[in-house]
Design a protein around this nucleic acid. Structure first.
Length: 237
DNA sequence: AATTAGTTCAACCGCCGCAGC
DNA sequence: TGCTGCGGCGGTTGAACTAAT
């Protein structure tokens, strides 16, 4: 699972994400959204936070693993049938297939296909209900939407950047040193703050809704598929 | 218990399309 | 029109894990 557990030439980490990196990335995106993946690591450079990852790596980690509402675990028979059917229709368009399976990522589906479904399909061509449904329906896209409404984007593309300063000028389109330093300070403040869930309990539902996703709440606890919220104090609204 | 072979899946790489200038 | 930067996608890799011998 680990390709290169060392740093590359630019000093950015590669390889497996640590729980701490996960926590920081989740906290940052949950709070601020992701306005720019490639800029994000600059706000989280190693000198400040230890989150020295390239933007692509951050995006991948978030999209495939940290994002809320992701399903983990085995694929259901229904999901398998859906994947097989959609693959017959769409080919290796994993992202399109993933869009029809809420909670599943393209990477996960791709892996599942190559490890399980591909060989299975070779021996047993699909004749499922879904297959019949799709093959009898010319308007594939509309039909997909009816079956599995595409969940809204989970990334806050237009979400506000970190509170850098009172300067109304966008801090991301300038190289002004004062702004840069303010930005760094702000990021430093963010990372040095207690984890967001400790301090944002009142804001979390609203914030999550505005970001296009939901937090699963049960008896005041946040349900995380990854467990790194587990150590946090439960909170109430 | 040790070794080998096969499987899984997180992560990386390179390419592409789009938007802004 | 071309350039640049970005997000996103699909293919691929390879360490970790599991089963078989």
């Amino acid at each position: 699972m680990v390709k290169k557990p060392c740093c590359d030439k630019s000093g950015l980490r590669q390889g497996t994400w640590t729980a701490e990196e996960d926590r920081k990335l989740t906290a940052y995106i949950t709070r601020y959204g992701c306005w720019n993946w490639r800029q994000l690591p600059k706000f989280a450079d190693g000198t400040v936070s230890g989150l020295a990852r390239c933007g692509k790596s951050c995006r991948l980690r978030w999209m495939n693993y940290l994002r809320p509402n992701l399903k983990r675990g085995n694929f259901t028979k229904e999901e398998d049938e859906t994947i097989i059917t959609l693959h017959e229709s769409l080919g290796n368009r994993w992202s399109a297939i993933a869009a029809m399976l809420p909670g599943r990522t393209d990477n996960e589906i791709k892996n599942h296909w190559h490890t399980n479904l591909k060989k299975h399909v070779k021996h047993k061509p699909s004749t499922t209900k879904l297959h019949d449904k799709y093959t009898n329906n010319q308007n594939l896209n509309d039909d997909h939407l009816q079956i599995n409404p595409i969940i809204p984007p989970l990334i806050l593309e237009s979400s506000p950047p970190p509170p850098l300063s009172t300067n109304t000028q966008s801090p991301f389109t300038t190289t002004d040193n004062s702004v840069e330093s303010t930005k760094a300070d702000s990021v430093s403040d963010f990372w040095s703050e207690p984890f967001l869930l400790d301090i944002l309990s009142d804001d979390l539902p609203t914030m999550g809704a505005s970001a296009g996703f939901e937090f699963d709440l049960l008896d005041g606890e946040i349900l995380s598929p990854f467990g790194f919220y587990d150590d946090l104090e439960p909170f109430s609204f």
